[in-house]
Design a protein around this nucleic acid. Structure first.
Lengths: 212, 212
DNA sequence: ATACATACCGACCGTATGGTATGTAATCTT
DNA sequence: AAGATTACATACCATACGGTCGGTATGTAT
């Protein structure tokens, strides 16, 4: 059962604070470069507390990915992009929402699990799997709207709603990398714009969606 | 002047071998998780040789990104996708080429500089800049063909050839992440397929390219 | 032949790292 | 209230890490 820490109470229990610190620091420096001591300092927690809650640093990585999945899915569930009546408009509103978030400090709007994946996919399978669950789980939330949009417009395509949902995530992840490389969110915005145009085109009336 | 090492001659000079080792190992484990000793062992070189050629580990990171830019640009320059007469076909052939490469060991076909960017964008600006140069430099090689395709089809678009070239790189980078997360190249293939369909759609005859 | 520079070797160093062992206080169970 | 369990704190450890340093071998110019 959680209990406030000595060093800085009234900020939640040690475990949650460590996960929050991991979310912020790992996004900025990566998983390997982030040390246990650093996480403890940021969370206002001692090393004993760290290894009480997480058997190893790798276990923290897994927990951080799961924490990320939970918190982001809550955030997106409450986001305003679900309100349009037309399912296609909901999908486009999702992209607009993702685009709108891309401002300010890079480490605040880039993706924890995408970052970790690159580093640990070969060396820490447990973390990688948790990251994959997070990414694919989030992608899956788009599928119903895409399917509904396909049905509403009677689209018979050579692509699946699932693959399009995942493609959106791929574009987002790639946009993060371009933004990090250049320090300029504009490149990320441009990529989302291209993606939005693609989705619009897929559902456009005339020769749309490459009907068979 | 390069000189073969004692441990394993006839494999090039120490510097090049270290850069080759960095390319392979960093792609699998990331920059931070890759140790100097590990690189030396893989290159069959001693630590003395390492720090003779590179002042610090960070300097090796910069050199590895530059090495990557040189070797890949050579590879793409000689690749077969330049042969079609129609510039649009060359762009599509580029995508087909990128897609075809995506098979086998992940660490062999994913992007060194994309991986490094995620880790070091905030902590090692020098490496980040070298990575940005590599990515944007490669993207720039696509611009002439895209521009020619736009001109050939008289496309007046609200997007630029440069932004489309960069978007292609974003999709590639994102595809790498999905493939790493799932261990399945199929997700990367699907994303490239979507990108290809997008590019085709942009240049399609009827209501093309969102003319103003 | 001498002098100098480059390329490489391998032992060593200070520190930072992930992890442990042990102790103490709050909370739960009965 | 008593014991058990959970939640945290502190001191400590073995090792691995980036980096240094003195030295040697191989050119290269004069």
């Amino acid at each position: 059962m959680p209990r406030p820490t000595k060093q800085d109470p009234d900020r939640g229990d040690a475990r949650t604070r460590l996960l929050g610190a991991a979310r912020d620091i790992v996004r900025r420096q990566g998983f390997t470069a982030t040390t246990v001591d650093e996480l403890c300092a940021a969370a206002g927690v001692t090393k004993g507390a760290f290894f009480h809650h997480f058997k190893t640093k790798e276990a923290l990585g897994v927990a951080a990915a799961e924490f990320w999945a939970e918190t982001t899915s809550a955030l997106f569930a409450e986001a305003p992009y679900h309100s349009p009546d037309d399912p296609l408009d909901r999908v486009l509103a999702y992209l607009d929402f993702r685009r709108a978030i891309m401002a300010g400090d890079l480490a605040k709007w880039t993706c924890l699990v995408g970052t970790m994946t690159q580093e640990v996919y070969a060396s820490h399978p447990a973390i990688r799997d948790a990251c994959a669950d997070s990414i694919l789980g989030h992608a899956a939330t788009l599928i119903p709207d895409i399917e509904a949009a396909m049905e509403a417009r009677a689209i018979r395509a050579d692509w699946t709603a699932e693959s399009l949902a995942r493609h959106c995530q791929a574009v987002l992840q790639g946009a993060f990398i371009l933004a990090k490389a250049t320090g300029d969110p504009a490149l990320a915005h441009d990529s989302i714009d291209h993606l939005r145009r693609y989705v619009e085109g897929l559902f456009a009336p005339p020769p749309a969606g490459r009907t068979a």
